[in-house]
Design a protein around this nucleic acid. Structure first.
Length: 413
RNA sequence: CAGGCUGUAGUGUAACGGUAACACGCACCGUUCGGGUCGGUGAGACUCCGGGUUCAAAUCCCGGCAGCCUGACCA
């Protein structure tokens, strides 16, 4: 993509009301744009990040055998009344009226809808376990949205729902997600720690939250920096790590994901019965598993930035390579060589943001590249061409290196 | 929702109660070209909205609305 044509530009200063680092940088870099409190648009750069993360998570979850679906965000009140959550959940549940005066709910979560749907299809143990996944908008009428993307009224969630034959089978499915989530966060360079948690309005027996230690975090956890052990709700007052014995740190953390063993809380009201091997009718045992993608983006930026801007992990980066040409007004050789590299890399399927702007100085281009934070910056200038090469610098490293022109494309694939 | 803070151009900031200024950004001209070059010209604001006080309100008062921060809940 050519930066000269990119919608939206970077800002030198963050809006005065931005406090969170991620909020400031995402606004300054032109990733998001606020519509109102807790409601944001994704601009081209931000949308690419969102889609990259979504695709990454999708790939990882496909490995544990999920099927992807897409459920409505507009729900008839009846399904929410069936489980009692229509009344149980307070103001946070977004209720609206249809033109006939009928009550509707905006998708706060999808247990009800998936249970309603699954009840029509599950009939035998042979169909279990079943795991359905989606990436869908959630609406929550938050009392107080905050920190840019950290806490929103409307956000995208990866939410999966599992149906098992027994508690024991659910344990297995649950464990698969537990491991998959750890892997997903790790792949995004996030050191998230699982913490045993309360199930809250989701109900069910057991649940784990995946917490990322971060200054801006809203929750407190006891966390061992040595081995990654985190105290759960029962052991929150422990002083030392029960694994390695070192002192636990009280830390603020961001909740990135939450997994639940729901049991039969939803399968019961929706009659999700199946026939088991012995011909007996049994209730399917459910689990649910969710990650907030917008918050995930904010969290990445919170822990991966410096004073100059964002440092995206490879899988999240809007572009893998930021190609910067310093042709000034007239250096055709630099221009032509840059265009060629851009064409060649793009043809090979490499995602390149090409700073072809002719009205910007080198300093501005560098500042923007640092702010936007693509993992690799490639500079083409008369200086580098004198040596028949380009300059390659990783965003998370200090030193740049020269790469010969004839090896550039190959080295980037 | 309770408490607090703040609303001035796209962004950041000014303006004693005297009729809105500066920087960045944007447009144009020239200049410069490896870390936000320099100079010039120009466009851009019913000072959030509604009342009130006053000869006079961005400024003081009241009421709304909006945004942010602190709490609880959550991804």
């Amino acid at each position: 993509m050519r930066q000269s044509q990119l919608f939206t530009k970077t800002l030198r200063e963050a809006p005065a009301d931005a406090v969170a680092v991620s909020h400031m940088l995402l606004i300054r870099g032109g990733f998001i744009s606020q519509l109102s409190s807790g409601i944001y648009s994704f601009l081209p750069l931000g949308f690419r990040v969102l889609k990259n993360i979504e695709n990454y998570i999708r790939k990882e979850l496909e490995k544990i055998g999920v099927f992807e679906v897409s459920m409505p965000i507009l729900h008839p009140a009846e399904v929410w009344q069936k489980t009692g959550r229509w009344h149980e959940i307070g103001e946070e549940l977004w209720k609206i009226k249809g033109r006939q005066g009928e009550d509707l709910v905006l998708s706060m979560t999808h247990e009800e809808v998936i249970a309603e749907m699954a009840s029509n299809f599950i009939s035998t143990y042979r169909e279990l376990p079943l795991v359905l996944n989606q990436f869908q908008i959630k609406f929550r009428d938050e009392e107080r949205p905050r920190g840019g993307l950290l806490r929103l009224k409307e956000f995208i969630m990866q939410d999966a729902y599992s149906f098992d034959k027994s508690e024991k089978d659910l344990d297995e499915t649950y464990h698969k997600f537990y491991e998959a989530y750890l892997k997903i966060f790790k792949g995004l360079d996030l050191n998230a720690v699982p913490v045993k948690a309360l199930s809250g309005i989701m109900g069910g027996a057991e649940s784990h939250e995946f917490m990322l230690p971060a200054k801006i975090g809203e929750d407190k956890i006891s966390f061992c920096e040595k081995c990654g052990y985190a105290a759960n709700i029962e052991t929150i007052n422990e002083k030392t790590c029960s694994k390695c014995g070192s002192l636990l740190q009280q830390q603020r953390a961001i909740e990135l994901g939450h997994i639940f063993k729901l049991g039969v809380k939803y399968s019961e009201p929706f009659n999700i019965y199946f026939e088991d091997e012995d011909g007996l009718k049994k209730l399917a045992v459910m689990g649910s598993y969710g990650i907030g993608l917008d918050r995930l983006i904010a969290a990445i930026v919170e822990v991966h930035s410096d004073e100059k801007g964002i440092i995206w992990p490879l899988v999240a980066a809007p572009f893998k390579i930021h190609l910067v040409e310093l042709s000034g007004k007239g250096n055709l050789e630099v221009k032509n060589e840059s265009e060629k590299i851009y064409r060649d890399l793009t043809a090979k399927g490499v995602e390149v943001l090409y700073d072809d702007r002719s009205d910007k100085t080198a300093g501005e281009k560098f500042a923007d590249a640092d702010l936007i934070g693509c993992p690799v910056r490639v500079v083409v200038s008369n200086k580098t061409l004198d040596r028949q090469s380009v300059e390659v610098k990783k965003r998370n490293e200090k030193e740049a290196e020269l790469v010969p022109l004839d090896k550039v494309v190959a080295s980037m694939i």
